[in-house]
């Protein structure tokens, strides 16, 4: 995927942002599960885990923002229309860009959702 200049969108670029959400989700879950296992000492502090998740969150958010920015700019460059039912490669491209934009927004929200638990839970209870 190209960041500057134009790229041709396809099904893989469409699912890039939600895939990053998937990575973020699995990383957070597995790390916390691993650090708390076997769940014997439930008052164990998991400060390091929370910092690590926060770090990965920032990277994931930046990546999604990059995708968002690219989709937004290319979509705007072509007029940013919502009507993309035409039989042209441009309409297909605009449709994919706009859909990528929507999915990136959803992924952004979902990653933010996924990060909330680290502000609330300090240990393995």
């Amino acid at each position: 995927m190209q960041v500057f200049g134009k790229t041709q969108d396809n099904l893989w670029t469409l699912i890039a942002a939600p895939t990053i959400w998937g990575f973020h989700f699995l990383f957070s879950y597995f790390l916390a599960a691993y650090r708390c296992a076997p769940n014997a000492d439930i008052f164990k502090d998991i400060g390091g885990t929370r910092v690590a998740i926060a770090g990965v969150t920032i990277v994931c958010l930046l990546l999604i923002l990059l995708i968002l920015r690219r989709a937004w700019r290319e979509w705007r460059a072509e007029g940013g229309g919502y009507q993309n039912a035409k039989d042209t490669p441009e309409a297909r491209e605009r449709f994919l860009e706009f859909s990528t934009l929507l999915l990136a927004l959803l992924s952004l929200a979902a990653v933010l959702f996924e990060t909330m638990p680290i502000f609330v839970f300090w240990d393995c209870r």
Binding site: F25, A33, C36, F113, P117, V120, C124, R125
Partner: peptide
Amino acid sequence: GLPSISLGFFSAA
């Protein structure tokens, strides 16, 4: 009986 932080991730999703 999973740790609450794990439950939190799934609740958020």
